[in-house]
């Protein structure tokens, strides 16, 4: 109980906290999407290559 009262007096700084986590998720997801896009286009190209090889 005493601990709780102590904490209540602290500046919460929740804005800074959420900003940090927000930036982190955005960056990690952004990079993930960048890779996923690349991967998809590459998989299509690889598929085409396989088909071409069969035709030859």
């Amino acid at each position: 109980m005493y601990m709780f009262l102590l904490q209540a007096n602290l500046p919460s700084n929740l804005g800074y906290l959420s900003a940090a986590y927000f930036v982190a998720w955005i960056m990690l997801f952004g990079y993930l999407i960048f890779i996923a896009k690349k991967r998809r286009s590459l998989e299509i190209t690889l598929e085409n290559i396989k088909n071409e090889d069969k035709e030859l």
Binding site: Q7, S12, A20
Partner: peptide, 19 residues
């Protein structure tokens, strides 16, 4: 737990230190 000296902001620690 919430840090006694710093408060909630200390939770950035778990993101900052590992990265």
């Amino acid at each position: 737990p919430t840090d006694i000296n710093l408060g909630h902001i200390q939770r950035i620690f778990y993101l900052h230190v590992p990265t």
